[in-house]
Design a protein around this nucleic acid. Structure first.
Lengths: 244, 244
DNA sequence: ATTCCATCTTGATTTATATCAAATATGGGG
DNA sequence: CCCCATATTTGATATAAATCAAGATGGAAT
């Protein structure tokens, strides 16, 4: 395991408040593995044997049913996934595969669950992480039910341009096929949607997106914080005392 | 506040392991209110001032954007809602309205958050509840992305027939317009989808559904536990000790 | 460079679903 | 019990999106 990876994982909100001893134990028990692209890490329906932490690379969460397949999320460093399944010790609802060469820390199920039941601080951090993920997913669900494909793309581009440094320029975090599935459309449709957005100042070359004028794009996209805001992790602070 | 309501709330997994003193305090601080149908309890974007527990009646969670509106969930007794928003002390992502005369316990934000930070047991129960809700929503999201409208309805009927006592007969928990929005379709389309399901042994009279043969319907619906299983709440037990 | 393969694009068409417009039920007050 | 308002159904049509079928593009390996 690369020693320089440890502090990065340590600094995740999930682990940052945990005491050193306990974190050491987790690291001790964990595997650090490197995978090439296109490796299946998890298959939906399998038991959640590990909590995964993506340290480097990129992972796609996806789901299949009846011959159809869709992307549920694109995960980038540094973040944990399948926490809910691990915690409840149940089967995964989503599959996961690398789509870049990736380095992952894999912490065995029992260790996570033991920490959760023994360590108050960790339990709190878990709740914070879960509520973040939950609200993230509420937004995704609202988006797919309330917006058309073209609007979803436009807002996705605005969110990405915010999340990455430069608001005028960025690179898609995955291939267009994956992005299409993430946004609930076919690749053909994504292509056409990009075409339509050129009328709103979006220029595409390969995976590179240029936005002439975010305001103009927003006029079309109509973003709202109730769908598009990034969920901040809840910092567990004291609550002001109640009553007189 | 009706004294007979208290034990019901007490028995929710969220509160059942909490110690008596603390629960008393929550009850003390809580409001118990009765509302007629069609009352807006929460508007998305508003701060989450209370954790709501539905004791009797029925509540619709919904979301609006750009003149469109959709149903996110139909809540029945006894269950809590907007936990994630309360915990993080942020705005609600969904609106809520009664659609039956309803009795609700409303526990002030600060009390919930104080319990969460002071009471390990409660923090654990919160995490369990959140992971349940999260996985529930993952399933909803998979369903809408991977199934057609008719399949969604068929599987919804199968789930309902399981959840309610009689597998051959049950009543819809809400009007068809609401069910349609919940399943991501228009009322017109729901009507036609019901029509199509008559070929698979589904008989409808008003809100009353009769399923001739669940197996036959399942042949069409192709249910899978990875979308259709009901999430059980995680019972927080000890984890077997690790290593030699 | 050139080939090969995968990805992406474009156009034609089909399918799923929404919308519009009536007609028909349904159910709760008067 | 009747009437009204609302919900649901049905039919006709429009729109969004998927599918099918070629092409074009762009890398990576040779």
């Amino acid at each position: 395991m690369r020693p320089e990876d440890i502090p990065v994982v340590r600094n995740l909100p999930l682990f940052s408040d945990m005491d050193d001893r306990r974190f050491e134990e987790l690291v001790e028990a964990a595997l650090l593995q490197t995978f090439p692209p296109q490796v299946d890490l998890i298959r939906e329906g399998d038991p959640a044997d590990f909590l995964y932490v993506l340290v480097e690379g990129a992972v796609e969460m996806y789901a299949s049913h009846n011959g159809r397949e869709t992307t549920m999320a694109v995960i980038e460093p540094t973040s944990a996934f399948i926490l809910a399944a691990v915690l409840n010790d149940v089967v995964c609802l989503m599959s996961a595969r690398t789509f870049l060469p990736s380095r992952l820390m894999m912490i065995p199920n029992e260790h996570i669950r033991r920490c959760f039941s023994e360590d108050t601080t960790f339990a709190g951090a878990v709740a914070a992480e879960l509520s973040k993920s939950y609200r993230q997913l509420v937004k995704q669900h609202k988006e797919i039910k309330l917006r058309f494909a073209g609007e979803r793309l436009a807002n996705y581009l605005l969110r990405q341009s915010q999340a990455r440094g430069d608001p005028t320029q960025f690179t898609l975090p995955a291939g267009k096929g994956t992005i299409a599935a993430l946004l609930g459309m076919t690749p053909e449709n994504l292509s056409r949607a990009f075409g339509a957005l050129s009328a709103h100042g979006v220029r595409v070359r390969g995976g590179n997106i240029h936005i002439d004028d975010a305001k103009r794009l927003a006029d079309f996209a109509k973003p709202t914080p109730l769908i598009d805001a990034v969920e901040e992790i809840y910092e567990r602070r004291g609550v002001k005392s109640i009553g007189p």
